[in-house]
């Protein structure tokens, strides 16, 4: 579930961010407590707390004293915006590198991307009507 390339608390924060982006955790929904995170992922509670606090400091989650932690309104838009910024570095660069290695031509690569994007849009049209941002 965790890999060793980065600290677990960072990975915990990313999991929560994923859930927010995917809509599993809605805005203003309560997130599990740090002890629940710790028990579920079998990690040290201090580590879980560190991950959650990362998101609190970031304004993605907020604390209600004595009640728990909740997803902030607007959190999803912020996260989606950030991921768009990282998109090139994280997905496009490795893709282009691999294509170069395999001798896939620019035009072929572009055609593949266009085809995939069209398919994706078609799927999205028949599925949920969730906005892009």
């Amino acid at each position: 579930m965790f890999d060793d390339s980065k600290p677990i608390f960072v990975q915990i924060a990313q999991m929560v961010e994923n859930d927010i982006v995917d809509g599993v955790l809605a805005e203003e929904a309560q997130v599990p407590s740090t002890n629940e995170f710790a028990a579920f992922h079998r990690i040290n509670p201090a580590t879980a707390a560190k991950g959650v606090n990362l998101l609190v400091d970031d304004g993605i989650l907020y604390k209600k004293r004595g009640i728990g932690m909740f997803v902030a309104t607007g959190a999803r838009a912020v996260l989606v915006g950030r991921r768009r910024e990282d998109f090139y570095e994280q997905f496009v660069r490795p893709l282009a590198r691999e294509a170069r290695k395999l001798g896939i031509e620019r035009s072929q690569l572009a055609a593949m991307l266009t085809r995939e994007a069209d398919d994706g849009l078609a799927d999205a049209g028949t599925g949920t009507k969730k906005g892009a941002s």
Partner: peptide
């Protein structure tokens, strides 16, 4: 053992 250790530690640090 690990699970009970974590659970009890969470409750009684």
């Amino acid at each position: 053992f690990y699970d009970r250790l974590l659970a009890d530690y969470s409750e009684f640090p």
